[in-house]
């Protein structure tokens, strides 16, 4: 029987889950935990961009805008209106999702490089609004003093508390995005990417699929932004630049465009590498640049390409 046996990826996921839960018990260094927390946030970002750019093939250069909108909505709600963490967190996601709808709509008319440059422009417009709408966002002064998250009587304060909060959101995002990516819906998105006309002929309303992919991707980026705002307790427009969009894109591409395990691995590498090379001081970005070039020359479709990922997902242990 083909169906028997246990999927390898499930085993790996289980091991990673257990490792993730035990991690703070094994490593007590607050710095390492902080870096891991940031890495988890990046994983959510890169997975969400992977849905838009990898799976649906919409080359998107403004992901930091979603991330920033989520962060600012959560920060402003909690600092100015003192709303609860859960509300601000969800509002951050929904707000970003709404911006995703705005950016997703031009996909109806624009494609390829024209769409790319539009997303770039949207990203910059959002950043410039954050920077210049001083009466609301405090502009370049940023928003300090974002309170500790509190829900159901639990107060998140230490790095380890944040670790479990972010880890929980990460697991949730992985499960939801995994379900989306490897489902019929995901298959349709991939069909649109490969041949939109053919997809249309099959009666698929491609517009709705493309726009919803943008909205879902933006929603998760917004949630990541809200987490980041609470985690860092201070945000400013400096964190949501075009360079950050490119950084997230690089994670997706290096990991493997269209592949979820790839997006995760890419985020892990590109979030850790600048930290790992920190001792090189002014030389470290030279190494990071070379690393990026090296990886992509070595594996053209990323470390775990889409095909590899799908093969990997079908690997089984035991049974036959």
């Amino acid at each position: 029987m083909e169906k028997r046996g246990f999927y390898l990826y499930k085993l790996i996921a289980l091991i990673l889950l257990v490792l993730g839960i035990l991690f703070p018990l094994l490593v007590s260094d607050q710095y390492v935990i902080r870096i891991i927390n940031m890495t988890f946030i990046y994983i959510i970002l890169s997975m969400s961009l992977n849905l838009i750019t990898g799976v649906t093939g919409q080359f998107h250069l403004g992901h930091a805008a979603f991330y920033g909108v989520g962060a600012y909505i959560a920060a402003l709600l909690s600092v100015k209106l003192h709303v609860s963490f859960l509300f601000a967190f969800i509002a951050g996601g929904i707000g970003a999702g709404f911006i995703g709808l705005l950016i997703g709509l031009p996909t109806i008319r624009l494609r390829d490089i024209y769409l790319t440059v539009t997303t770039l422009g949207f990203g910059e417009i959002v950043r410039l609004i954050l920077l210049n709408w001083v009466s609301v966002t405090r502009g370049p002064m940023g928003i300090p003093g974002i309170p500790y998250p509190e829900f159901f009587g639990i107060k998140i304060m230490s790095q380890i508390d944040f670790y479990y909060l972010i880890f929980f959101v990460l697991i949730l995002s992985v499960v939801v995005l995994f379900r989306i990516t490897y489902s019929r819906y995901g298959d349709i998105l991939r069909a649109i990417r490969e041949n939109e006309l053919a997809a249309k002929t099959l009666g698929i309303n491609t517009t709705i699929y493309k726009v919803t992919a943008f909205v879902i991707g933006a929603l998760f980026a917004g949630l990541a932004g809200a987490l980041f705002a609470y985690f860092s307790a201070y945000i400013s427009p400096d964190s949501f630049t075009f360079a950050e969009s490119i950084n997230i894109l690089a994670m997706v591409v290096i990991g493997g465009l269209g592949s979820m395990p790839g997006a995760i691995l890419g985020a892990v590498i590109l979030a850790l590498a600048p930290e790992a090379f920190r001792f090189l001081a002014e030389y470290r970005m030279v190494v990071v640049g070379l690393l990026m070039l090296g990886v992509i020359l070595w594996r053209h479709s990323g470390l775990i390409g889409e095909q590899t990922a799908i093969k990997f997902m079908n690997m089984k242990i035991g049974g036959k």
Binding site: Q30, R34, I35, G142, R278, E282, R284, M285
Partner: peptide, 21 residues
Amino acid sequence: IAMDSKGDPKEAANIAQKFVM
């Protein structure tokens, strides 16, 4: 011990965590 923050607040926070440890 000199560390590069790139003018990026997130990196400055990482450095801070590293220094305090």
